[in-house]
Protein backbone atom coordinates (compact mmCIF):
# COMPACT_ATOMS: atom_id res chain seq x y z
CA UNK A 1 0.00 0.00 0.00
CA UNK A 2 1.09 3.57 -0.65
CA UNK A 3 0.46 4.42 3.00
CA UNK A 4 2.96 1.82 4.23
CA UNK A 5 5.56 2.94 1.69
CA UNK A 6 5.14 6.55 2.79
CA UNK A 7 5.60 5.60 6.43
CA UNK A 8 8.80 3.77 5.51
CA UNK A 9 9.94 6.83 3.52
CA UNK A 10 9.24 9.03 6.54
CA UNK A 11 11.47 6.79 8.67
CA UNK A 12 14.28 6.94 6.10
CA UNK A 13 14.04 10.72 5.87
CA UNK A 14 14.07 10.98 9.66
CA UNK A 15 17.19 8.82 9.90
CA UNK A 16 18.96 10.82 7.18
CA UNK A 17 17.92 14.09 8.78
CA UNK A 18 19.29 12.96 12.13
CA UNK A 19 22.53 11.54 10.76
CA UNK A 20 23.32 14.53 8.55
CA UNK A 21 21.56 17.20 10.62
CA UNK A 22 19.77 18.06 7.41
CA UNK A 23 16.77 20.30 8.04
CA UNK A 24 15.13 19.60 4.67
CA UNK A 25 14.97 15.86 5.47
CA UNK A 26 13.59 16.53 8.94
CA UNK A 27 10.85 18.69 7.45
CA UNK A 28 10.05 16.14 4.76
CA UNK A 29 9.95 13.38 7.38
CA UNK A 30 7.25 15.21 9.33
CA UNK A 31 5.31 16.02 6.18
CA UNK A 32 5.55 12.44 4.90
CA UNK A 33 4.41 11.00 8.23
CA UNK A 34 1.17 12.98 7.83
CA UNK A 35 0.64 11.85 4.25
CA UNK A 36 1.19 8.24 5.32
CA UNK A 37 -1.74 8.53 7.73
CA UNK A 38 -3.82 10.49 5.21
CA UNK A 39 -3.40 7.73 2.61
CA UNK A 40 -3.95 5.01 5.19
CA UNK A 41 -7.46 6.38 5.73
CA UNK A 42 -8.22 7.25 2.12
CA UNK A 43 -7.04 3.87 0.82
CA UNK A 44 -9.12 2.10 3.43
CA UNK A 45 -12.20 4.02 2.29
CA UNK A 46 -11.80 3.62 -1.46
CA UNK A 47 -10.87 -0.07 -1.40
CA UNK A 48 -14.47 -0.80 -0.50
CA UNK A 49 -15.73 0.95 -3.62
CA UNK A 50 -16.78 -1.74 -6.05
CA UNK A 51 -15.55 -0.07 -9.23
CA UNK A 52 -11.79 -0.28 -9.15
CA UNK A 53 -11.24 2.16 -12.03
CA UNK A 54 -13.09 4.88 -10.06
CA UNK A 55 -11.15 4.53 -6.81
CA UNK A 56 -8.49 7.14 -7.61
CA UNK A 57 -11.17 9.73 -8.42
CA UNK A 58 -13.00 8.89 -5.24
CA UNK A 59 -9.82 9.28 -3.23
CA UNK A 60 -9.23 12.75 -4.67
CA UNK A 61 -12.57 13.89 -3.23
CA UNK A 62 -11.17 13.74 0.31
CA UNK A 63 -10.59 17.19 1.76
CA UNK A 64 -7.88 17.59 4.41
CA UNK A 65 -9.78 20.10 6.54
CA UNK A 66 -13.06 18.18 6.41
CA UNK A 67 -11.19 15.05 7.47
CA UNK A 68 -9.75 16.82 10.48
CA UNK A 69 -13.04 18.48 11.42
CA UNK A 70 -15.20 15.34 11.24
CA UNK A 71 -16.98 15.21 14.57
CA UNK A 72 -16.92 12.25 16.88
CA UNK A 73 -18.26 11.95 20.41
CA UNK A 74 -18.32 8.68 22.34
CA UNK A 75 -21.71 7.52 23.60
CA UNK A 76 -20.56 7.94 27.19
CA UNK A 77 -18.10 10.82 27.13
CA UNK A 78 -16.68 9.99 30.55
CA UNK A 79 -16.32 6.30 29.86
CA UNK A 80 -15.47 5.64 26.20
CA UNK A 81 -15.16 2.04 25.03
CA UNK A 82 -11.71 0.77 23.95
CA UNK A 83 -12.75 1.13 20.29
CA UNK A 84 -13.96 4.69 20.88
CA UNK A 85 -10.73 5.48 22.75
CA UNK A 86 -8.66 4.24 19.82
CA UNK A 87 -10.78 6.27 17.40
CA UNK A 88 -10.31 9.42 19.49
CA UNK A 89 -6.56 8.78 19.37
CA UNK A 90 -6.67 8.43 15.59
CA UNK A 91 -8.72 11.61 15.22
CA UNK A 92 -6.44 13.62 17.54
CA UNK A 93 -3.31 12.28 15.88
CA UNK A 94 -4.63 13.14 12.41
CA UNK A 95 -5.18 16.78 13.42
CA UNK A 96 -1.80 16.98 15.13
CA UNK A 97 0.08 15.48 12.17
CA UNK A 98 -1.79 17.72 9.74
CA UNK A 99 -0.90 20.84 11.72
CA UNK A 100 2.74 19.78 12.03
CA UNK A 101 2.84 18.95 8.32
CA UNK A 102 1.67 22.46 7.46
CA UNK A 103 4.30 24.03 9.71
CA UNK A 104 7.02 21.73 8.40
CA UNK A 105 6.24 22.67 4.82
CA UNK A 106 5.62 26.41 5.23
CA UNK A 107 6.80 27.80 8.60
CA UNK A 108 10.48 28.54 8.20
CA UNK A 109 10.46 30.08 11.67
CA UNK A 110 9.88 26.66 13.22
CA UNK A 111 13.16 25.46 14.72
CA UNK A 112 12.63 21.76 14.12
CA UNK A 113 14.46 19.49 16.50
CA UNK A 114 14.92 15.74 16.68
CA UNK A 115 12.07 15.33 19.17
CA UNK A 116 9.65 16.92 16.67
CA UNK A 117 10.63 14.36 14.06
CA UNK A 118 10.53 11.39 16.43
CA UNK A 119 7.15 12.57 17.68
CA UNK A 120 5.69 12.70 14.15
CA UNK A 121 7.08 9.30 13.15
CA UNK A 122 6.01 7.48 16.31
CA UNK A 123 2.62 9.18 16.28
CA UNK A 124 2.05 8.02 12.70
CA UNK A 125 3.19 4.49 13.59
CA UNK A 126 0.89 4.44 16.58
CA UNK A 127 -1.99 5.66 14.40
CA UNK A 128 -1.42 2.87 11.86
CA UNK A 129 -1.63 0.25 14.61
CA UNK A 130 -4.69 1.78 16.23
CA UNK A 131 -6.57 2.33 12.99
CA UNK A 132 -5.90 -1.19 11.78
CA UNK A 133 -7.14 -2.58 15.08
CA UNK A 134 -10.52 -0.82 14.76
CA UNK A 135 -10.98 -0.33 11.01
CA UNK A 136 -13.75 -2.93 10.72
CA UNK A 137 -15.72 -1.65 13.69
CA UNK A 138 -18.97 0.18 12.94
CA UNK A 139 -17.94 3.29 14.80
CA UNK A 140 -14.71 3.52 12.78
CA UNK A 141 -16.45 2.93 9.44
CA UNK A 142 -18.98 5.66 10.28
CA UNK A 143 -16.22 8.06 11.24
CA UNK A 144 -14.40 7.41 7.98
CA UNK A 145 -17.59 8.28 6.17
CA UNK A 146 -17.77 11.51 8.19
CA UNK A 147 -14.16 12.27 7.21
CA UNK A 148 -15.22 11.86 3.59
CA UNK A 149 -17.81 14.57 4.23
CA UNK A 150 -21.02 12.63 4.79
CA UNK A 151 -23.39 14.17 7.29
CA UNK A 152 -24.80 12.13 10.18
Amino acid sequence: MLADDLLEDARHLAAKGDAEKRMSCMRRAISTAYYAVFHLLVEDFVEHWEFEDQRARLGRMFDHTKMRDAAFTPKDKKNPTPVETALIDVKTAFGQLQGDRHRADYDLGWNIIQTDVTDAITLAEDTFVKWRSIRNEDVARHHLLSMFGAKR
Binding site: R68, A71, T73, T92, G95, Q96, G99, D100, N111, I113, Q114, T115, D116, D119
Partner: peptide
Amino acid sequence: FPGMGVFPYHNYRSVSEQAALQE
Protein backbone atom coordinates in the same frame (compact mmCIF):
# COMPACT_ATOMS: atom_id res chain seq x y z
CA PHE B 1 -11.66 21.01 24.11
CA PRO B 2 -14.69 20.89 21.78
CA GLY B 3 -16.73 22.72 24.45
CA MET B 4 -13.93 25.28 24.71
CA GLY B 5 -14.01 25.81 20.95
CA VAL B 6 -10.39 24.85 20.37
CA PHE B 7 -8.44 22.03 18.76
CA PRO B 8 -5.51 20.84 20.89
CA TYR B 9 -1.98 20.61 19.51
CA HIS B 10 0.84 19.14 21.59
CA ASN B 11 4.51 19.59 20.83
CA TYR B 12 7.49 18.34 22.81
CA ARG B 13 11.13 19.03 23.37
CA SER B 14 13.74 17.92 25.83
CA VAL B 15 15.44 20.05 28.47
CA SER B 16 18.68 19.90 26.46
CA GLU B 17 16.95 20.95 23.23
CA GLN B 18 15.35 23.91 24.98
CA ALA B 19 18.68 24.84 26.58
CA ALA B 20 20.20 24.99 23.09
CA LEU B 21 17.32 26.89 21.49
CA GLN B 22 16.44 29.21 24.40
CA GLU B 23 12.95 29.95 23.05
